[in-house]
């Protein structure tokens, strides 16, 4: 589903590369944790997959396509196959929960009846049934993140990228979010989640890829956060 071949990314000339010759592959339906300290290259990894950045060298393949060879105007179509969730939720504060989720369908031209049925379905799935008319600031952090996940998933993308989705949440709430991501993963959606929440990684026992200073130092099936444990 996602394949990196000797991918390097250097932001400023002469600086240490953010990613250094990374090669790895994520299969369809996999759940992968991307772990490492801040600045280890986790976010750069995700940005490359979203084609918000281009690699300095090497190639990135997403859903069978070489991202360096798709033209600029096709990038939106690539992103329609990828849902994205962030630590800071990135919701529109002046729009209701329903509208925040619906926007993902509206901007890609889905018909109205499709929006009217799919959005409530997805909100129910993430556990927000009955809160359609709320505004983001009326919700708890965990609920806001569920809205963000609903927005990322409402279009049923093949891939879901999550950049520290539990970073702003307390442990109990985080567990709820992880259950939700696990459910989404079971529908066949490939998930790549960048995190430094060791408890969660240890509990889930999924594949773990560890980055240190832009280099991949570990790729472990059913792994834990720290290798030494």
């Amino acid at each position: 589903m996602i394949r990196l071949e000797k991918v390097s990314k250097v932001y400023a000339r002469g600086a240490r590369p953010a990613l250094d010759r990374i090669s790895m592959e994520v299969e369809r339906g996999e759940f992968v944790f991307l772990v490492g300290a801040s600045g280890s290259g986790k976010s750069t990894f995700l940005r490359l997959v979203l084609r918000e950045e281009r690699p300095t060298s090497g190639s990135v393949f997403v859903a069978g396509r070489d991202l360096s060879r798709i033209s600029q105007w096709k990038v939106p179509y690539l992103r329609r196959q990828i849902g994205t969730v962030f630590q800071d939720f990135r919701l529109l504060n002046n729009k209701t929960v329903f509208d925040n989720v619906a926007i993902a369908l509206q901007v890609i031209g889905k018909p109205r009846h499709h929006v009217m049925t799919t959005v409530p379905e997805t909100l129910e799935m993430v556990g927000l049934a009955g809160k359609e008319k709320r505004l983001p600031h009326e919700l708890s952090g965990g609920e806001q993140q569920r809205v963000a996940i609903a927005r990322a998933f409402v279009n049923r993308p093949a891939i879901l990228l999550a950049d520290e989705p539990t970073g702003n949440l307390d442990p109990t709430t985080s567990v709820g979010i992880m259950r939700l991501l696990d459910r989404i993963n079971r529908t066949g959606t490939t998930i790549v989640m960048a995190t430094h929440d060791d408890e969660i990684v240890d509990q889930m026992r999924k594949r773990v890829v560890e980055l240190v200073d832009g280099q991949m130092v570990r790729d472990q099936a059913r792994g834990v956060y720290g290798a030494e444990r």
Binding site: L50, P76, Y77, L92, V107
Partner: peptide, 17 residues
């Protein structure tokens, strides 16, 4: 900009934005 960045994220085309 926040709105457009989100629209871009969910795959809105350039023209649409």
């Amino acid at each position: 900009s926040r709105e457009t960045s989100i629209m871009r994220l969910v795959g809105a085309s350039n023209l649409f934005i």
